[in-house]
Every structure is written in C-alpha cells, then in structure tokens.
Design a binder for these strands. Structure first.
Lengths: 140, 140
DNA sequence: ATATTTGCAAAGGCTTTGCAACCCC
DNA sequence: GGGGTTGCAAAGCCTTTGCAAATAT
C-alpha cells in the first residue's frame, strides 16, 4: 500500500484526529500533484466529498502543517508540506501559468534564516514566489 | 508638493492613463504606509471612493507595476512597488501580526535570479514571505 | 455509546460587472 | 465633444456556518 497514506494515518492519530475516508481522499488527491487551487481540488474530488468538507479538512490539515498555501498572484494554491512531499519554492510563468517546483537551495535558506534573526525574529517558515516567463513563453 | 504624487501623475500619463482624483486618492492612501489589506484600503478611503473603483484602480495599478500584492498567509496585502516606495520583503509575526519590511539583500536577490535562470525562466519579480515570531512574542 | 465528522442548504464576504452619469484631455 | 472613469446596484464567486444524519473509536 501507499507508504505516504500510512504515514498520514499515523500522523492524524498521533495528533488526536480521526482518520476518516474523507481525509484520506483529500490527502490522496493532493499526493504527488502539482499545487492545486481550491477549485481544482473540489472538482477533482467530485461528488465524493462535499465542498464544505474540503474547506474544513484543508483548514485542519493546514493547522497541522500537512498542507501549505502558496501565494499565486491573486489566488493561492495548495500542496502537501515538506513532510509529505518534496520541494518548496516555485517559479510561476506569468504567460502560461506553468508552475515549476524548485529544490531547496541551502544557501538561500540560510540567508533567509539569518535575515529573520537580524530582525529579532525566530522564523518558522518562509515562502518564495518567483514570477517570470518560462523558456517556451520567453521565445514568443 | 508631494514629489511622489507628481511622479505618479507623470507615470500615469506616460502610460496613457488619465490622471484622476480617484487614482490620486488611492495612491496617496497607500503612500508611506504599512502594507494594507483591501478592506483597510477601502475603509481608509471611506465614502471618498466607491469600493468598485478601488478594486478597478488596484487592478490597473497592479498591471502597471505601481502596486504589488503580498501574500500574507490566507489573505494578501497591498503596497506600492519599489519604484514608488522602499523595501520589498517582509517578515510577519504569526502571533501579533506585525509586519516588518526588510531591505533588499543583494546576495539573496542574485541567488534567486540565478535560480530562475537555471530553470530556463526569465524572472521579472519575486516575493519572499517569512513567517515567525517577533522578539516580543518569542519571549512569551 | 459517544464524540467527531460529514452533507446539505443557507448565509456571509469579497470581487466583478453593466450601465448611466461624470470627468479628464 | 468624446472617450475613458466612476458610482451604484446587482450578480457571481468563494468560503463559512448551523444542524441533523452518519461515522470513527
């Protein structure tokens, strides 16, 4: 079976939350996916899960750090956090909307942490959004 | 008079857009301010400017690069872009909501541009959001 | 068995749009 | 004067909420 799914189930129990079908379905819908908008996620789950439950579950999983929200210009997209997937920065093509995940770059991570520290902040997380044009769209 | 306002007026004309009272008022409401939410901006303009006009103007100014949207967790905030104000990255305190602007750090800027290039992207802009706790809130 | 979670339907917000009146050039 | 802007009111989305039925432990 899915290693990731089991990890998720264990995680939920460890945090005193029930392990329900709805939550599993939402988790699976997001596993190994490009970041999704709420609209896409709701649509993908079709009539399997009610819209309100998707919102409620996303809130819950976000508060537990399983899901993260990415700024995408006006809107946002959702993806599983580091612990359940990979990479965490993105480049968005302003022309075609393509989103490319980027591996963590330790050099940047460290600078960011130092930057926060220099302001007296203790940083928990950060998010980097880069906007530009992808190679295909740059040629137009 | 306001240097910045004149610059703004000139900018609008240079881009073939009318220089109206509504646009000036919105610009002034954002000048030298902490980043504002749409709600705050609308409220600040009170009955001087209609809500719909605020939205329309923000769209326009955003497309011209005068205004930028910052991701702030769930929501977003608005601020004037580099050309009309200063600084462009922020640290948000997850506890008290305080937002601290950070000077550009050339080292990070360069790494980000290189990063985009390595993916075949031509980057126009980027946004860095750091979340953590400020010094005051860390002590609690 | 019981506390939690879900679907449904309705309400609440935020954002956009059509159109007539108004303003800038 | 005429095209671009604005206010108003209404429509469209997105998100949240109350509650009874269903589900997990």
């Amino acid at each position: 079976m899915h290693d990731a799914l089991q990890k998720f189930q264990t995680f939920l129990k460890a945090h005193s939350h029930s392990c329900t079908k709805v939550r599993e379905q939402i988790f699976l819908a997001m596993l190994d996916q490009e970041p999704l908008t709420m609209r896409e996620l709701v649509k993908k789950l079709g009539d399997k899960v009610d819209r309100a439950s998707v919102y409620r579950t996303v809130h819950l999983l976000e508060s537990l750090g399983v899901i993260e929200r990415l700024a995408q210009g006006w809107k946002y997209k959702l993806e599983l956090s580091d612990e359940f997937s990979e990479h965490h920065h993105h480049i968005t093509c302003l022309n075609c909307g393509k989103v490319v995940p980027i591996e963590e770059v330790e050099e940047i991570e460290n600078l960011i942490i130092q930057l926060a520290k220099s302001q007296g902040f203790h940083s928990f997380s950060h998010q980097l959004e880069i906007r530009g044009t992808c190679s295909a769209c740059s040629m137009i």
